[in-house]
Amino acid sequence: MFRRILVAYDGSEGARAALRRGIELAKALGAELYTISVEEHLPHYAASISEVKAAKEEIDDYFHTLTKQARDQAAMNGVELETVIRQGHEVETIVTMAKEGSFDLLVIGYHGHSRIFERTMGSTAQSIVRLAPCPVLVAK
């Protein structure tokens, strides 16, 4: 069955549901559990390095808190969680990690942070399901 599970985790409501499912599955199956959090919000075309650095610090703080909470949540359920934070495009980064990390299940949330964007431009979840190299569980 599933031995390496990857959860896409950005702290959104959908991602939290995905994490809960991931922890349950990892516990039931004795599988390795990872989360991937993608920082894709660095300001493009900034006026100064300071602006970029300030944004990076904010993002880092956010994701450090987020991943620590996720690890605590997993630990409370007796599961070891390894968290990875990357920069880049969300879909591309998640799919690449699933591929190159040889994961055999990817768990994602139905909605990310931006529902308006997803409704107008197409859902991140849809793109990941289409491109992922392994089965994808979409949590609601």
Binding site: R3, R4, A26, G30, A31, E32, L33, Y34, E39, D60, H64, T67, K68, R71, D72, A74, A75, G78, V79, E80, L81, E82, T83, V84, I85, R86, Q87, T96, M97, E100, G101, S102
Partner: peptide, 23 residues
Amino acid sequence: SELPEAEPVREVPAAAGKEAENV
């Protein structure tokens, strides 16, 4: 290179995990 290498299946310890950041 920032992607973690695929590891062979291993036993899952009960302790809390660690953070592998590649930022």
